[in-house]
């Protein structure tokens, strides 16, 4: 009863809403027909493992973008989390995980305070840690790649649970938690209201600063999770390469998934689909022996279409 009445679709609404799913379906059909070994368990498994960290980071990014913000520091947070792992792995995997998550909390608090209290523009506020965070991570790790031999951590990044990679389970759990947060919690509704009209949210008595800081903390913690899982997956910690450029993949996933950069709306499933779509595009190109440069151009075209579609919605 609650959702049916929503369906008064606007003219140009279908493209940002369903475009990404249609594109995924088209790519799957194409690959099933023309790409050898596409629909095999091992291939699907690889695709999921590769896309999982991007999904985890993109979910946090979607929340931030829902408040009309952006977080450029997610890649740096992954690097920080990764750099801290080898230092604390001696105390056990739990200690290492907690420390890297705390690093995420710290970065989120700084980003959130700069945006909510100091009033910096999110792109500038997070740019500081985008640059400084990775630098710090490299300093922490002495600029060296460190091999990880801890079986527990490797299990988190490379192991299976019920035949499905732990990494994929984690991403699935993150999707559920974020979707639930956006839809069902007071925090989620406040987040959307602040993104939709911040002065109005303030006058309505919402704790705007607290919500904004929480959003940036959540985003950074999700990035830290992605970082420590990546360490477990590649079984080494390299602060200079982990999470490099992932902020762009995450923003792309969010935008392609139909979340407007103007805030006030978060499409959780769309974001997941956006990440999956970009992953499929890359996979398709590679399997068809197209050079990376072509892949990049196709990605650019998809982003343009998504942004154009979102723009049409606004002028409605």
């Amino acid at each position: 009863m609650t959702t049916l009445a929503l369906t008064t679709p606007h003219r140009a609404d279908w493209l940002p809403k369903y475009g990404v799913y249609i594109a995924i379906a088209a790519l799957v059909v194409y690959n099933a027909a023309f790409t050898p070994y596409f629909l095999t368990v091992s291939n699907l498994r690889i695709q999921l493992i590769q896309v999982a960290p991007i999904i985890i980071v993109a979910l946090g990014m979607a929340l931030v973008i829902g408040t009309e913000g952006i977080d450029l520091s997610v890649g740096a947070v992954m690097a920080l989390a990764a750099a801290l792992i080898p230092l604390y792995l001696g105390y056990g995997v739990i200690a290492a995980v907690i420390v890297s998550l705390l690093a995420g909390v710290a970065v989120g608090l700084i980003n959130g305070a700069l945006v909510a209290k100091v009033g910096l523009q999110p792109i500038v506020a997070t740019l500081a840690l985008f640059v400084g965070g990775r630098g710090l991570a490299v300093v922490i790790s002495d600029g060296q790649l460190k091999d990880i031999r801890n079986a527990d951590l490797i299990y988190l990044g490379s192991g299976d649970l019920l035949g499905i990679p732990v990494l994929v389970w984690t991403a699935a759990l993150a999707i559920l938690v974020v979707a639930f947060t956006v839809r069902r919690t007071v925090f989620g509704r406040r987040l959307l209201a602040i993104g939709g009209n911040r002065p109005a949210a303030e006058l309505a008595g919402l704790p705007v600063q607290r919500v904004l800081i929480t959003v940036y903390v959540l985003c950074a913690v999700l990035a830290a999770i992605a970082g420590l899982l990546s360490v477990g997956r590649i079984q080494s910690s390299d602060a200079s390469s982990i999470g490099l450029l992932i902020e762009l993949s995450a923003i792309t996933a969010v935008v392609v998934g139909g979340t407007p950069l103007t805030g006030g709306r978060v499409r959780v499933l769309g974001t997941v689909a956006g990440a999956v779509l970009m992953q499929l595009v890359i996979a398709t190109m590679i399997k068809n022996n197209l050079p990376p440069s072509t892949t990049e151009m196709v990605q650019a075209a998809i982003i343009l279409v998504a942004v154009y579609a979102a723009r049409e919605r606004k002028t409605r």
Partner: peptide, 23 residues
């Protein structure tokens, strides 16, 4: 500019200030 949240529904707008009581 400062009153309604145009992108949200009527019910979200009405409940905005009293969410803690509604939860």
């Amino acid at each position: 500019a400062e009153g309604i949240i145009p992108g949200l529904s009527i019910r979200e707008n009405i409940a905005l200030s009293i969410l803690p009581r509604m939860s």
